[in-house]
Design a protein around this nucleic acid. Structure first.
Lengths: 236, 236
DNA sequence: TTCTTGTCACCTAGGTGTTAATAT
DNA sequence: ATATTAACACCTAGGTGACAAGAA
């Protein structure tokens, strides 16, 4: 069995509609997909991998007219909607890649003795990527999947391929691939919870995420109190 | 067969008498021990590891009276000798540890397709170290050794242990473990060639090590021309 | 006197969202 | 109008020798 790490954080993002940035060079996910694993054969070899499947067959877009222009900066917009419209049918599927955890293969004992983190996994929108990154269509929704493959020592192991792997899906890790954040609340939650974005925090630099616990005050409400939202009327 | 990478740099250090810093927390080696490997079975599994054996049974010390005091800084000295005296018999041997390359085990094809770098290996003088670092005695000389172990798939593989590994020794990688550099020329060569020490360079910030090639002008002579050595007479 | 330790400024290396410009 | 890109300031994380103080 498999337990998703940082589930509380995933839930918080999921409630807002998680977005993950895709770039040409490849961008890590945040939150990082991390799991605790139980019940492996400690002595057997396993490969751990992830892939991403479309949640639906749709392409999304922002609702018209909800963009706010930034005063004195013609051409710029800063506040995107949190809702999505269906823009039509999905773009052609991207090359279906998988990401093997770099420690693969390893013994069950090794995988189970600590949290397994997919922090080397990167998402790209570059169809011609040759860095082995996961290729996704921007403005499409995806479901990450986690697969555990038992390395069968038998000579005719191919015959048993079907029974030698198990797939785990956590719906709270679904997200929309984007090239720039669409929902400002997602942006702010990323800034509040990702250590690498600390430079953009304007609230108390205090003990986040050190003191954050599941069940504590919801992040966004805490955030909203200390933030000056872009409130000046659009002067379109 | 195995080929030592950056041999020219190792040779340059070796001519001066290589020193490696040991600290309580653990210090990486510089140059880093890196090799190219040839002739493995691409499909077989191998473990790669290193250990360190004493070059002799001696403890070393600096010759007396060669220390230069730094003007206006009583108690400080800045220029150590490049020669060593035998201080006596070696201290009790440290716990004999080995460092497995973190990618072990892996297929021969994997090991051979790129340079294998032991940049995670750290040296410590802490006899009680529990980080798995290599424990060495300061002021003693060591010879790094590189071992390739074939992972024998046979059930009674223990019987063949003797024939399933091969050891490679490069004498130019010998060094003296120290807690602070003793030979100023070693310090300067480290500063000149280690990217992480760039902050201490006072010569042209130009294209080192980018343009450095084996056979080019020896480093130290190039360095000496642009450096102000500590030349004021000792006022002991 | 000689050697060791801990702190520091200054680097490398690379992960963030912002921003302005550009593409479609 | 909407979406993407590239450069950037500002972080995390950690590898350097210098330096001052301490230990033996």
């Amino acid at each position: 069995s498999v337990q998703l790490e940082m589930k509380a954080l995933w839930d918080e993002f999921n409630q807002l509609g998680t977005e993950m940035i895709v770039t040409k060079a490849g961008r890590r996910m945040f939150p990082t997909f991390q799991v605790k694993i139980f019940g492996m054969d400690p002595m057997a070899d396993y490969m751990l991998l992830m892939d991403f499947v479309p949640v639906d067959d749709k392409r999304y877009r922002q609702p018209p007219g909800l963009w706010l222009r930034v005063p004195f900066s013609p051409g710029r917009y800063a506040f995107h909607s949190s809702s999505w419209l269906v823009a039509g049918k999905a773009d052609p599927a991207t090359p279906g890649r998988v990401h093997y955890h770099p420690d693969s293969p390893a013994k069950g004992a090794q995988w189970m003795k600590q949290i397994v983190s997919f922090d080397k996994l990167k998402l790209t929108n570059n169809l011609l990527d040759d860095n082995g990154h996961i290729i996704l269509n921007s403005m499409h929704r995806y479901q990450p999947r986690f697969h555990v493959v038992y390395v069968d020592p038998r000579k005719d192991s191919e015959k048993y391929a079907e029974e030698n792997f198990k797939t785990f899906v956590f719906e709270e890790t679904r997200f929309t691939a984007v090239t720039a954040y669409q929902n400002h609340r997602i942006t702010q939650l990323k800034i509040a919870s990702n250590p690498f974005a600390k430079g953009f925090r304007d609230c108390d630099p205090e003990d986040w995420p050190r003191n954050h616990r599941p069940g504590a005050l919801p992040l966004m409400s805490a955030f909203a109190r200390s933030r000056n939202p872009v409130s000046s009327p659009a002067h379109q």
